[in-house]
């Protein structure tokens, strides 16, 4: 008996909960050499910007225990080339595509939404809010509920009504729930947690920061507990809002943990660098785990860890208990 792995991102049905994490699948073509992109729930693109971006100088990456720091700086082709080359390539193959967008002003996010609203092949839009706001002395949108909400409501207004808008949040905030709530009030149909928290490492040979950009985003299993905590808190506060759980997922067990915390979709980033087949492997492992625990549907496991203690046994066991009239 196989598990029903279908899931919903707002009203959009995905065949299964696995997605790539933004910025970790390049244009999609690179990963397509390793597996059929149609077999994952959706591909999340790198964050698309209005103009082409060359990104940050190298070194851009430093390996850290169970993770890595990166300061790529949203290198990408810009929206014109994306709409001309990358999106049609994905659309032709029927790949479910969640387009991530990044901007420096509310107007720039709005302009991106305007360009995407009529583009064929956009399953959802994920708004990367971990970008510095040029109108607020470079303060990152995701750090301030009001400016995050302003971006979301602008994108929501301009984007076709039937394309869900996902707000991607950063854990580098005092209260992730209040930013999440502001985004939902601004019109976000779903949330993605977490973007990579800022970290830093220093090369003890050169006596200089390891990254040219000095600090960078920390990703990989090192951040998983942080991601699980954020997903947990936000799901507890906003149980009706679909969550894409991202951060340090390397195995089916890790994906299951995200699901139990409240995620209905799971993103895989850094693990793809280690294992290009990671998405399909994790999907298989997750399905096996769900099956072994007696679940018939993935949906039944979403947020299950929030049940009060004492109720901690699997659904299958609970059902047996009730039927046996004890």
């Amino acid at each position: 008996m196989s598990v029903d792995m279908r899931t919903y991102l707002a009203h959009v049905e995905l065949a299964n909960p696995m997605t790539t994490a933004a910025g970790c699948a390049s244009s999609g073509r690179e990963l397509a050499q390793f597996f059929d992109l149609n077999r994952i729930g959706a591909l999340v693109t790198r964050s698309i910007t209005m103009a082409p971006r060359a990104g940050r100088p190298t070194p851009r990456m430093a390996e850290t225990p169970s993770g890595m720091l990166n300061a790529i700086g949203l290198q990408g082709p810009g929206i014109d080339a994306f709409l001309e080359r990358d999106l049609p390539w994905l659309a032709q193959r029927g790949v479910r595509t969640i387009v991530s967008i990044g901007g420096g002003t509310v107007a720039e996010y709005g302009a991106l939404a305007r360009r995407l609203t009529d583009a064929p092949g956009v399953t959802a839009v994920e708004v990367n809010l971990a970008c510095p706001n040029m109108e607020d002395r470079g303060r990152v949108f995701a750090r301030d509920g009001a400016s995050a909400a302003e971006v979301i409501s602008s994108v929501r207004t301009l984007m076709r009504y039937d394309v869900p808008v996902v707000a991607k949040l950063s854990p580098d905030v005092a209260d992730v729930v209040s930013v999440a709530r502001a985004c939902v009030e601004g019109g976000a149909d779903a949330l993605s947690l977490i973007n990579s928290p800022l970290g830093m490492s220093i090369d003890t040979e050169t006596l200089r920061p390891s990254l040219a950009a000095v600090s960078g985003g920390l990703s990989g299993p090192a951040v998983r507990p942080l991601a699980v905590r954020c997903v947990w808190q936000v799901h507890a506060a906003l149980p009706g809002v679909p969550i894409i759980g991202v951060g340090g997922v390397l195995t089916g067990r890790d994906a299951f943990e995200m699901v139990l915390a409240g995620a209905c979709v799971v993103g895989v980033g850094t693990a793809l660098f280690h294992d290009p087949h990671a998405c399909l492997r994790i999907l298989r492992e997750l399905e096996e785990l769900l099956q072994a625990r007696g679940f018939q549907r993935l949906a039944d496991a979403v947020g299950l860890a929030h049940r009060p203690p004492g109720n901690a046994r699997s659904r299958a066991d609970t059902t047996d208990m009730e039927e046996s009239s004890l």
Binding site: S47, A51, R53, A54, G55, R56, G73, P132
Partner: peptide
């Protein structure tokens, strides 16, 4: 180890480029 000023998409390069970083 640098982003040359005339590289496609370099900060302040002709044709837009990036004003912000992330």
């Amino acid at each position: 180890g640098t982003i040359p000023f005339d590289a496609l998409g370099a900060p302040g390069s002709p044709g837009g480029g990036a004003r912000h970083v992330s």
